[in-house]
């Protein structure tokens, strides 16, 4: 069954088209990567899925429900969690409180569970910074916080936007482990990433985006082997 389905989604800011007739379906329980050059509309696509932007035309279905007109808050309640490419922490709240908010409101629980949040922080290696204001974190830790906070909303679908950039090999390995175990626990993953080896270690399908259009879709091996992708994405002359 498709957990997420986009049908003919279009988005334009004035004359600039950032999503053009985007249609795809994501199976429940799968892990999908999205690649494409800078400015291809990858983050815009996420914003259209999460409701931070509304589509000019087309439909977004999640869990069999039409969510096209739903707010970001409502989509989060339905189970869409996200990390922002440019981290958006609650700076004056502590790292832990960032997660408590997400844990409490994300799944519309009446209360938050400190144990769950501490577990997540342990996985993302932020536990020793739990009681620091999020505003004091380095960029790397802010990215970890983005992932942690999205996990705390208890999502069915998790959208990750460039969280592996700048990590050391060891850090990258542990990030891959975290995402793999999330995936193994049944969370569907869509991951935008330039660090290809990290991406291909997790995903079983790649979508390629260029100028707001999907120009490639398939297994990582097939997609990377396609001439069109090599030309446009990797910049190799034909």
């Amino acid at each position: 069954m498709a957990l997420l389905e986009l049908q003919q989604v279009n988005k334009a800011f004035g004359a600039v088209v950032v999503a053009k007739d985007v249609s795809f379906a994501i199976e429940d329980g799968s892990a999908v990567g999205i690649i494409g050059p800078n400015g291809a509309g990858k983050s815009t696509l996420f914003n259209l899925i999460t409701g931070n932007l509304s589509a000019s035309s087309g439909k977004v279905h999640f869990g069999g429900e039409d969510v096209t007109g739903r707010s970001a808050m409502h989509r989060c309640h339905l189970g869409i969690g996200r990390s922002f490419q440019v981290p958006q922490p609650f700076e004056k709240l502590t790292v832990l409180e960032n997660l408590l908010v997400a844990n409490c409101f994300g799944a519309e629980a009446a209360y938050y569970d400190p144990d769950t949040c501490a577990d997540i922080l342990e996985q993302t290696e932020l536990l020793d910074k739990a009681n620091l204001p999020a505003g004091s974190l380095s960029l790397l830790d802010r990215k970890r916080l983005e992932l942690s906070r999205a996990m705390a909303t208890r999502p069915r679908l998790l959208l990750l936007d460039e969280i592996a950039g700048g990590l050391t090999d060891a850090e990258c390995k542990s990030l891959i482990e975290t995402i793999r175990s999330l995936h193994a626990s049944g969370v569907t993953i869509i991951w935008i990433e330039h660090v290809l080896h990290a991406l291909t270690a997790v995903v079983d399908r790649l979508l390629v985006l260029n100028f707001g259009e999907i120009i490639g879709d398939g297994t990582p091996t097939d997609v990377m082997a396609s001439r069109e992708v090599q030309e446009i994405y990797l910049g190799i002359e034909a």
């Binding site: 999460t50 931070n52 958006q88 709240l93």
Partner: peptide
């Protein structure tokens, strides 16, 4: 706590529900 999140970043607050 939710209000503290709204104070710090209203877009992110809405995105975590």
């Amino acid at each position: 706590l939710g209000l503290g999140a709204v104070r710090d970043n209203v877009i992110a607050a809405r995105s975590v529900g």
